[in-house]
Structure formats: structure tokens, C-alpha cells
Design a protein around this nucleic acid. Structure first.
Lengths: 347, 347
DNA sequence: TGTTAGCACTCATTAACATCGAGTGCTAAC
DNA sequence: GTTAGCACTCGATGTTAATGAGTGCTAACA
């Protein structure tokens, strides 16, 4: 059986309609609504074929048809025509990025918020990470009599900090010297040499040996820490607005997947064998590895922030999500981030 | 009509039962389950009185009774007997606090998580804020050729940072000097004098005048910024586990209230005229000012973190939440925070 | 006078059943 | 190959009756 032009037209009609209404579509509806020049009976025959080919599904005998994952896949691969962003939408995204480009945390949060606002789906944004995290600078800062704070800046422009307890906090000058020692060590020695304390053993017996050791340990801990990988979500509750999740248990299962940081990272980093549009990857329904998201699609991509450092952005909605709109929106904001970051870096 | 001992016993039975089952309670159930030595008919009469007094409500003629907000209020004020925490629970809370005491962000997140784990309700934790935010220390840190990072530590041990663009980034020594200037200014001048640039006008014409000005502006912005007030939530989706929110619209309305940061701050800071137990405040149903949370109760308190700096913790559940358990749990974790912070500060 | 057994009554819930209508597959004619 | 026509399916909707948990009231009792 061949997938001729007419079958594709019908499939497209079904998908477009289903995206808009979330209701199974019958042959008569198509015959009336789309001017295909054929009768409902003919459409009926074609639909029967489309079902056999696996592109549509009949929830029960005597109901209309609903697109299958495979149907959406064909639609996304071959039929999709993007909806252009309006001037206002572009400006909104661009200014969101521009206003927050100097602060990665705000940028992630506001990006998530903006995407949710424009799409009404759920957005997930992960912190930029490089293959190899490099320490750009460490600074030890005084806090009070018995504690100092170490601040670590990494090559992905992420700033982390930790409090260190001391018997008696040294003054700023001493702390600056210690900072100098630490920075020098991170420049001149390998990570292993630092972990083994070889890189700074000579300082261990100095009056501030204990503090210096504490600072190194704290920095290593901070950088190596998994608990630190931030992921922001926005619009999780929008799930409840879609009729496919009006069954509370289905909604719960999606929520479960979206509430654990590990799961979210999984979603964003999970395979997605090939890129669908430019750098954008699309996972439809069961293409996704998470059982809980089998009724969802994920549209995701990476953004660059800092040298060699990439974070991810994903938009999650029901499989019948509005691909034609979401992809340009996502594409646009990533373009903005890359542009603005570049302009920012160039001064 | 007087609220005698027997009526109170019956009310208590109704509330305990309703907290456990979420089902309206009838007179026969009470007669059978609780050995009050009176027949269901007598209980019926008493229940009728209790309804007239406003402590219980009949959802419809011929159904059992359900506690009203006023009923819960009486229960909380006069009848509540706390459930002691087990050794394991105490240890869990204490170690959660101890492991994160050096980092306010983790502390907030893990506190929220731990409370949700023990109670199965929703937890909200807000960042510590002092009446007056004081700047403990400012440090300017090198990043790359065209940007430096300012790190601001405030008296509530919160660390904030901002990227500043420069034409050509000075070396660490110069940045340390600049940090020195800034810190000195914040020590010796009033906030107004800094905002008006009077405090550092003498430096504005030096080679690094532009950068110095940028740093001051950035610090002021950082400290004054409302967008920065962090609030963490945990277990929001647990709402769906309670039958009172199996109506998806009711759940949505609660979610709405819990998804906006402003709302959450509102919840945590909202009045709550008097403290119910020690420093713990309880808002039952409509006692809460948010319409969306009229079917919820909020149990909240403050914790101290850093000098004169307080954050809030709130636990939100249905009005029939397990007050007897939640209050000791909340009480315990705050005690832990205060203890551990104290031990930590004392060295 | 307070308590209680008894009884009529209420009303949400559930099940059984009929009806409706959107949609199908199949057949026969064009 | 297309289509009109028709019998059939099945979810959705509505009606009715039965069930049972619960009430309020009354009259008798201690």
C-alpha cells in the first residue's frame, strides 16, 4: 500500500484538527471542513489504510481517528510549516535575554518563564556545563570572626560559594594572599595534584595551613558536586489545562517526572538520536525514554553560555503540541542568547 | 447553648475521624467507634447543637458532619495533643540541617524537601531577610578580558553576584584595591551617600573611575533588588493525593497560588494575627487571606539565619491536615536550624 | 429532664436500561 | 476508483429504581 499525496493530505488534516481540538476526527468532519474534492466514504477508505500503515489510531470501533506517534513523526519530518514569530514575540524574547544575560540564574529562570508565556507548555532549562569544568578564579572573602566564604567562578560563568569555619578569621590582606595561592595552584597544577594535596603541600605547615587546606577541599567539593546542577522549570501546572491529562493519574505521572531534578536532566540530556531542525531535537511520545512522558513530546535544544559551555532548554507538552509554533519560538530564543552573549563578550 | 465536655468529646471524635478518612462522619459511626457511653440518638442531638454553634457542617441533609474552620480552630486551640517525633525523625531533620548549614540555598531546598518527606504536605521556604540588609563584604573578581564579577556578601549570609563589562579587565591586584575602596566606603558612609556617589566621588576621575562606579551601582542594584528574593517549594504535587482536591479545578486554583513567587511570599508573610504554639502560626481555611487557599491550612514559622536575619517556613495542606504531627516536625526543624547555626557561629 | 428506640424521610450513589448520535465498514451501483 | 446507502458499534447522556447511610422527630422510659 502506498502513501500517496491524498493520504498525506488527509493525515495532515487529521493532525491539524487534532492539535486544535484534542477530539478524534471522523471522515465526515474532514469532508466538510477541508475541500479535498472527495466524499466521506472515500476518506473513510483512506483512513482505514492510514490506520493499517500505523499513522493513525482508532481509540475504539466507531470512533474517529487520532494521530499515532508515527503520524506525528511523519508530520514533523515532512509536513510541518513553521508559523513565523510576530515582531512583538521576537522583541519580547530578545529583550528577556538581553535583560538577563549578565546573570546565568536569572537568564535561566526568565527564559523558562518567557517560553512558557508564549507557548503555554512546560519549559525546562538547565545550567550551562562544559565537558570539563575549569576554575577561572577562587576568592576567599571575610565574613565574620569565625567564618570566611570561598567564591568559585568557573569557565561557564557560574558562581558558587561555600562557608568555611575557622578559629579566628584572618584579615582581608591575608585572605587575598590565600586566594592568590589557590589560584596559582589551579593554574599550574593538574586536578589530581590538587586533590592529592601535592600541589600545595608546602603551605600545609604555615600558620594558615589548615585554612588553605580547607579552601582547596571546599573548592574541589563545590566543583565536583552533582547536587549543584541547577535546573529550572516553568509552567508545570499547564499540564492540567490539556484534556489528555484531565485524568488525575496521568497528570500525576507527568508531575512525578518533572519534579525530580535527575529526571529533568535525563529528559534534557537523553538521546534524541538526530537533530530535527538545525540544532533542535524532537522526541515524540514513546520516542522518549521516560515511561511517564509517553503521552508527551519534548522539543529541545542547547544554548551556549561561556566558553565551551552548554546548557539545554526543553519544552514539554502533549504529543499533539503545536510544533509549528514551538519550534520557531525555541529557535528564536536560542538565537537571541547566542547573539546577545556574543555581543556581550565582544564588549 | 453551652459547649459541655460531652460535646467537645464528640467534636474531637469527628475531627480525628475526618482527618483520617476525609469522609463525613455520622452519629452511628461515632457511637460504635468511640466508647462515649451514649447512644447514636443522643449523639445526633449533640451534633445538631454543634452544627448550630458552627463547629461542624452538614454538606447536605442526610449526610454526616464535617468539621468547619471554626471546629478546627477549637481543636487546634484546645484539644490538640502533639505526636512526639521518633528518634529517627529527629535525627533525620537534624542531620539534614547540619549537612547544609553552611549554604543557605541548600539549606532552604533540603529543609523543604525533608519536611515534605516527613509530612507529605507542601512546603515553602523563604530566604532569610533582615529588616535592613547590610553589606558585609564586596569583592571584585577577574573573569576574562572584558568582564569582571562582583560578589556581594550580606549580613544574612546570602551571596549574590553580577557580571560587569569593562573595556579591559584590570589584574587581580587592582581588583583587590578596588574591592578595598568599595568595602571602605560601605563601612564609612551612609547608603544615601553611596547612592548619590558622594562617598566615592574622589575616585571617579581615576583611571578606573568608570569601573569603580559600575561596581557601586551593581552592588546597590543587587542589594535593592526584589527579583532576588528566593522562595523554594517542595511537594506541591502532593496536593493531588488528597481527595478534597480530586476536582481538578480546585487543584488548579491551589497550584496557581503556589506558582507565583509573590503569592508564596504573601502566604509566608501574611498576618496570622497571633502565634499558636511558641513561634508557630496557624491559618485555617478562610483565616488565610488568599481565596485560592480557602480549603487549605498553613502552618508556618520563622527561622533565624545570620544576625538579625529571618526566613520563613510554611507547610500547606488541606484544612484537615494532621496538625498533631506537622507542628512538632516544623518546630523540631526550626529548633535544629537555630541550634546548629548557633553552634556553627560559635565555632 | 435527659436519654433512647423507633420510624419516616432525605439524598448521594450505583446499577440497569433506553436513547442518541457520531462514526465506522461493507455493499452495490455509478 | 468513487460514492450513496445502510446496518452496526459504542461512548455519552438521561431516566429510573434500588440501596443505604444518615438525619430529625416523637414518644416512651429511667
Amino acid at each position: 500500500m502506498i502513501l500517496n499525496e491524498r493520504k498525506i493530505k488527509i493525515l495532515e488534516a487529521i493532525i491539524n484538527d487534532y492539535i486544535a481540538t484534542a477530539e478524534p476526527i471522523g471522515s465526515r468532519t474532514i469532508a466538510k471542513k477541508y475541500d479535498l474534492g472527495i466524499s466521506s466514504a472515500t476518506i473513510r477508505n483512506e483512513m482505514s489504510d492510514l490506520e493499517e500503515l500505523g499513522f493513525i489510531i482508532q481509540p475504539h470501533t466507531s470512533s474517529g481517528r487520532v494521530p499515532s506517534d508515527r503520524g506525528y513523526r511523519l508530520y514533523v519530518d515532512r509536513l510541518l510549516r513553521f508559523r513565523e514569530l510576530t515582531e512583538a514575540e521576537s522583541n519580547f524574547l530578545r529583550s528577556t535575554v538581553a535583560q538577563n544575560i549578565d546573570h546565568i540564574e536569572y537568564l535561566m529562570r526568565q527564559t523558562a518563564k518567557a517560553l512558557t508565556m508564549l507557548t503555554n507548555y512546560t519549559t525546562v532549562v538547565s545550567e550551562p556545563k562544559s565537558q570539563e569544568v575549569k576554575i577561572k578564579h577562587v576568592q576567599v572573602i571575610p565574613f565574620d570572626d569565625t567564618s570566611v566564604i570561598t567564591v568559585v567562578v568557573t569557565n561557564n560563568k557560574v558562581v558558587k560559594n561555600n562557608v568555611i569555619k575557622v578559629d579566628h578569621a584572618p584579615d582581608t590582606d591575608i585572605l587575598n594572599q590565600i586566594s592568590g595561592i589557590v589560584n596559582k595552584a589551579f593554574k599550574e597544577f593538574s586536578f589530581e595534584e590538587i586533590v592529592s594535596k601535592k600541589a600545595y603541600s608546602q603551605f600545609l605547615n604555615s600558620p594558615y595551613g589548615k585554612l588553605i587546606d580547607d579552601v582547596f577541599v571546599s573548592v574541589i567539593k563545590t566543583v565536583g558536586q552533582e547536587r549543584d546542577m541547577q535546573v529550572y522549570t516553568s509552567g508545570v501546572n499547564n499540564i492540567l489545562d490539556f484534556p489528555e491529562f484531565s485524568d488525575i493519574d496521568k497528570a500525576k505521572s507527568v508531575f512525578k517526572a518533572l519534579e525530580e531534578k535527575d529526571m529533568l536532566i535525563n529528559i534534557l540530556e537523553g538521546d534524541g538520536s538526530h537533530s530535527d531542525f538545525g540544532n533542535i531535537k524532537i522526541l515524540i511520545g514513546n520516542e522518549n525514554s521516560l515511561e511517564q512522558l509517553k503521552d508527551c513530546s519534548i522539543i529541545k535544544t542547547d544554548y551556549k553560555y561561556g566558553e565551551n559551555s552548554y546548557g539545554s532548554i526543553g519544552i514539554i507538552g502533549p504529543t499533539r503540541m503545536n510544533y509549528a509554533q514551538v519550534i520557531p519560538v525555541l529557535s528564536s530564543i536560542v538565537e537571541s542568547i547566542n547573539d546577545v552573549i556574543k555581543a556581550f563578550s565582544d564588549g
